[in-house]
Design a protein around this nucleic acid. Structure first.
Lengths: 339, 339
DNA sequence: CTGTTAGCGCTTTCAA
DNA sequence: TTGAAAGCGCTAACAG
């Protein structure tokens, strides 16, 4: 391994001091035409030339050590292989890149222990801030982040007693819109598929469903929410669907795309005609929704805005060393393919 | 921001030297019961106690600077929001974590410039190694990585003239299996949907198709591969499908899941019955494949093994400072839901 | 078993 | 306009 080029090498080669090299390297990005350090144009050019010739790469570690800023953000999501979080990841990465930050991603798979492991390893890596989608039992870890004074923004879920900014969807309103689509068609025998998991996004969606159903005059005892364990969506959903049909359910709303997909598969295999024999409203994206004619309407989260807000708040905390503003940013969902 | 605790603080608090603290901290992970530095058990306990009490977090930057190892790997994929790469990302992250590495992810969106930007930013971050899915025109950047002497493993595509390990699917064989499924049903009017993009994974899949069709006795002029631009899969595919049907195509194989999904949507909307009026074989995963009865068979890449191999090679290069072993690791695809 | 010490590469103050 | 020098926090010889 040919020893990496350092500013010292450049200084030697160009016959100047390392300080000068450092100055020049940091001015590279002519920020707003204002140069903090004035260096002789000739010297500057010579240094830049040498740097290029020697293929100089600044050492990140040294820079971080000295400046104390790593410009790395850790994002701890639920499951990066799920489309929704995949899109979140992509947006975060892009937006962070533009701001000059690098993102580190990790999946919790809804397991508090894994979340803790990931968070600790990220801290080890010297992340400057965190964006976290909490899961059941993760409060301790989140508090740990706070205690370490590492900026933190919570995303997607808000039922965590930690005083940090939280960016979430207005889940109640979102599901109300979903129910509305079905109610608007005159349907009343509407049921919901949800997770057993108790996190605010899910609970709020359930609450929204309950609220709207009550408003529609449905008797509380007739409001049906079916809860399925996260780990066995496919099987459990498949087993449950026939029962729904047997009971003559007319409409179904879903708390997540995975639930919707599992149900649609089963319904389709049973020969049930979507949006005819039964009416559905999905949540989040899936290629499956668009398969049918008419397409299955679904609730779309404003992923770009969610990521934008989360990152903005985080940068605020990181850059302005602001006191932990415990704000709740709530964004509205939109309905796709409303019929 | 309360000054972070350093080994110095611990040393002072525990009344020992910083060296001792360092030794203890590095032995934390009792590797194979063998401790490199022997420290008095009482002292050790005291130090650990103080460290815990003061909530000590080792400074990553300093450690990296000193040891020269960041234990960070950069993965540059095509599009992390696509299921296939999403799963790749997840596997890489998990496996890397077990080996004590952290992954950095970036998407190229099949744009060489973006790939270059991402790579440079990762280098800036001090990654120790790269796993890259190249795209058209990315050779220069890959060579740049080599010149910097940063370990590199290429994944998914092999048509890059850079002497590094490459882990790919046996794409020719994979598509042959796909064609075989259709041929086994006695079909001969089989066509393929592919990308215009010239990367080995795609080209090889096309070659496999051509080969198998020739073997089946199809006249070269009758072998039809339809190439669709990556950026407009949906629209272009939708426009193309009716023509295929009009020509009485019996079977379709796809070079990627996105192509398959787009085609299936259109076919379905036209009322064509899958695996009856037309027979399909998909590539990679999609929830859409499982929607139909019988399910749409598809080619499944051994994602876990791909990631395992790629990471293993990379670690080899990073840890053993081995000379660039220019090996090509080819893995076999498997057919899911063969009927 | 424990302490001293010399840097890793870079930023930045202070002085020239 | 330039240079000298002091560390950032940690590791790892080397010396006791």
């Amino acid at each position: 391994m040919p020893k990496n080029v350092t500013i010292k090498d450049i200084a030697a080669e160009a016959g100047v001091s390392i300080a000068l090299v450092s100055f020049v390297m940091n001015n590279r990005i002519g920020e707003d035409g204002k140069q903090k350090y004035r260096v002789n144009q000739t010297t500057r050019d010579r240094i830049l030339e040498v740097a290029r010739r020697l293929n100089y790469q600044p050492n990140a570690a040294a820079r971080i050590l000295r400046s104390g800023k790593s410009r790395v953000i850790g994002a701890v999501l639920s499951d990066i292989s799920n489309v929704f979080y995949g899109e979140i990841a992509k947006q975060l990465e892009e937006k962070a890149f533009r701001k000059g930050y690098t993102m580190l991603f990790g999946s919790t798979d809804e397991c508090a222990e894994k979340l803790d492991r990931v968070v600790r390893s990220f801290i080890d890596k010297g992340v400057e801030g965190f964006i976290v989608v909490p899961c059941e039992g993760s409060e301790g870890t989140l508090r740990h982040i706070r205690n370490l004074n590492i900026p933190l923004v919570i995303m997607d879920r808000k039922d965590v007693d930690v005083a940090v900014p939280k960016v979430v969807l207005d889940n109640r309103a979102a599901i109300k819109k979903a129910v509305e689509i079905l109610a608007g068609k005159g349907l009343r025998k509407i049921e919901m598929l949800s997770y057993t998991m108790r996190v605010s996004s899910i609970s709020d969606r359930e609450a929204g469903f309950r609220d709207r159903m009550l408003e529609l005059g449905v008797c509380p005892d007739d409001i049906r929410i079916h809860r399925i364990p996260f780990e066995e969506v496919s099987d459990a959903t498949e087993q449950m669907v026939p029962g729904l049909i047997a009971r003559g359910v007319e409409g179904l709303v879903f708390a997540t795309n995975s639930l919707a997909i599992a149900a649609i598969k089963k319904l389709f295999s049973m020969g049930i005609r979507m949006q005819q024999d039964i009416h559905l409203v999905g949540f989040d994206n899936s290629d499956v929704y668009d398969m049918f004619e008419p397409q299955i309407p679904h609730i779309r989260q404003p992923i770009e805005r969610i990521c934008g807000e989360a990152l903005a708040r985080l940068c605020n905390l990181m850059e302005n060393e602001e006191k932990t503003a415990d704000q709740l940013i709530t964004l509205d969902a939109e309905v796709v393919n409303m019929q």
